[in-house]
Simulated scan of single mutants.
Amino acid sequence: MLNKRILQSLKSYIKAGELPLMLGLLPYFLDKEKVSMELFRSRLGYSLYKKIKKRYVKKDVKDYTQKVKCTLKNPIWFMWLQGIDSAPVLVQKNYSYLKKNFGEQLIEINSENLSKYIDLPDFILNKKQENKITNTHFSDLVRIQLLATYGGTWIDSTVLVEKNYFRELPDIVIPRTLKPGNDGNIIPISSWFLKFPANNPLIVRTRNLLFNYWEKNNRLIDYFLLHYYMIIASKELDDYIEDLPPIDNSLPHYLMLEMRKRPLDVDEIKNKMKYSGLIKLTNKTITTYENDNYSRLISILETWG
């Protein structure tokens, strides 16, 4: 049984003209081994990236810079469109932890106050209203405009960050897969935790490419479109990302993956939380163990930090 995200990816690849390649790679798709599916997706992703790169690299596009609407110092952006009171318990506990440790730096973004900070183009708002832009991708558009305009740190709602670790971070952060793990990986970066100063050239170029795409198109060509454009912008800027301080994007997933495998007691969870100052979690559980493990984790967050 294929999950919804895989089905959406397959449809996107077909609409992007990748059906002939998909048929050629069919044996990998049909193989039950997980590595075969990864090879299938990786090869299709690389083909799609080459198409996007050929079309957009060095392309002159409109500048979508907006005026600063308020004065903020080192903001920490945290978004739940329906409002934090409507968020899952994990998200609420994470928000409370950040609020306790960072106070007014933490800014909740929701559908009611978004316009207080940024003005998204009408074509984006209209396509969001028409469901041509999903909530997930809308968050990409919001984060890139917030960071381009104000700078600061974007934290996905299911990302935990240890307070002392956060305070020692460099001025620019993009979690990424480091060598040799990133060899052959066309998207070695993650966007669930980003830290940039305002008007950073990588973020501004990525924002302009992403907004230009939605001004011209009515559907998302790939789930990782933001990441493709960040890689393209980085290459235009002499491999900008390669010169940034190394922040690993693999270890933050360790606790989430362990909680899928077996029941963990409170002490085990606490010990595994020490492995990384960044911890990437999820609201979407897929195994029978996860709900109980997440309940224990949430109890830990009551007194964490």
Rank of each mutant, 00 (worst) to 15 (best):
L169F: 08
K99W: 06
K179Q: 09
K73T: 12
W80N: 03
V142N: 04
T153V: 07
I155W: 01
L7E: 13
Y13E: 05
D171L: 11
L257R: 12
R41A: 15
K195F: 08
S47Y: 00
Y117T: 04
P20K: 06
L251V: 15
D239E: 10
N182M: 05
M230L: 14
N212H: 06
F224Q: 12
R262S: 13
K132N: 08
F29G: 00
S47G: 06
L2Q: 15
K195R: 15
G277L: 06
D140I: 03
L72F: 08
L21H: 12
L44F: 07
T149L: 05
M256S: 08
K128C: 00
K274E: 09
C70M: 15
F211K: 00
K58D: 11
G152Y: 01
P180T: 08
K235Y: 10
E18H: 05
T282W: 03
G181K: 14
R167S: 13
I76E: 04
I124H: 03
K127N: 10
T158M: 08
S276K: 07
L125G: 01
K99V: 07
E162P: 11
P201S: 00
L169R: 06
P197S: 13
K67I: 12
K69Y: 14
L7P: 01
I286H: 10
Y213G: 10
L81Q: 12
L39W: 10
G184W: 11
Q145W: 04
Y49V: 15
L147V: 00
A198Y: 09
V159Y: 00
E162R: 08
Q82E: 12
R205K: 13
Q105I: 05
K34L: 10
E236H: 00
L106T: 09
P121M: 08
N3I: 00
D222Y: 15
D238E: 13
S42V: 11
P246T: 13
K284L: 14
S295E: 07
R143D: 02
L21E: 08
